[in-house]
């Protein structure tokens, strides 16, 4: 993508996505989808039974490594000091919004920073910010654990998606971001239920109709997973989605303006040129 083409568009590309970085994101997405949805696909058929237990462990070990590959590829594509500083500051802000706005009830506003930032600063920036915000939040609040790579990946997808939303202005843009925030907030919870559902549901004393069964068909497991999500986490996911959407509607305008101003000031698109000394 040439500099001219970039500056002609209204959007800023804070973290350029080279071909290799794109391939890495696509690949980690493909593996990530597998890591998330394996409970739906695995193990129908009796001979899969012993292996259905070690599949999650493989993903738990390998997903962080793949995240490292993607991070290295993104950084290799040219992440300048401005992108690094903005990433750090915005990730710190999202990280503090998570516990302060009460992660317990689900009314948490983490995506409120992520979505406008991805929108203004581009999909590459959104993806990295999602990863980094989850990581920083875990580093600060002690939320680190085997779930962290999954959270990082899901938040990265949300930031990436926000950067890929179609062009819109004014109220239409706010409305679009709010709807996206609502959907992302709910979907995040549902998707994160998936990978631990086979472990989680068995210990909670829930009725058998919602637990993972390695012998059931895909459709049966799908409906069980949906029932599990609706009975356990929907009361967290809906408030999260609604809170994100409401915050975007109420405070999104000044937020977008501030981010656009900062992006303009940082002038990501202008290449640094060094003239030879005159004398």
């Amino acid at each position: 993508m040439s500099t001219v083409a970039r500056s002609a568009g209204a959007r800023t590309v804070a973290v350029p996505l080279r071909l290799r970085a794109r391939i890495a994101i696509v690949a980690v997405t493909i593996v990530g989808i597998g890591a998330f949805v394996w409970p739906l696909l695995i193990g129908f058929g009796a001979r899969g039974a012993p292996h259905s237990t070690d599949a999650p462990w493989i993903f738990l070990v390998l997903l962080p490594l793949l995240m490292v590959v993607v991070a290295a590829e993104l950084a290799d594509g040219g992440m300048d000091a401005k992108a690094v500083a903005l990433l750090g500051v915005l990730a710190g802000m999202s990280a503090i919004l998570r516990p302060v706005s009460g992660g317990v009830t689900g009314v948490q506003l983490m995506f409120f920073v992520l979505i406008p930032a991805g929108r203004v600063l581009g999909p590459g920036f959104g993806f990295v910010l999602g990863n980094l915000a989850m990581f920083a939040s875990a580093a600060i609040t002690g939320g680190g654990g085997p779930w962290l790579p999954f959270q990082m990946l899901a938040a990265g997808w949300i930031g990436l998606g926000a950067g890929l939303l179609p062009r819109a202005r004014g109220r239409a843009e706010l409305a679009m971001l709010a709807v996206y925030g609502l959907l992302a907030g709910v979907a995040y919870g549902f998707v994160l239920n998936l990978w631990f559902w086979p472990f989680g549901a068995s210990g909670t004393g829930l009725t058998a109709s919602v637990t993972f069964s390695p012998d059931a068909s895909v459709a049966e497991n799908l409906s069980r997973w949906l029932r599990f999500s609706v009975t356990t986490s929907l009361s967290f996911d809906i408030p999260r989605g609604l809170a994100t959407a409401a915050a975007i509607l109420a405070l999104g305008r000044p937020m977008l303006l501030a981010l656009r101003r900062a992006a303009r000031k940082a002038a990501f698109d202008s290449p640094a040129e060094f003239d030879p000394p005159l004398i």
């Binding site: 950084a75 992440m79 690094v84 500051v89 710190g92």
Partner: peptide, 15 residues
């Protein structure tokens, strides 16, 4: 290879 992101993470945490 992760130097840039390491810096960003440190900025986030100290911020």
């Amino acid at each position: 290879a992760l130097y840039e992101l390491g810096v960003a993470a440190v900025v986030a945490i100290t911020f």
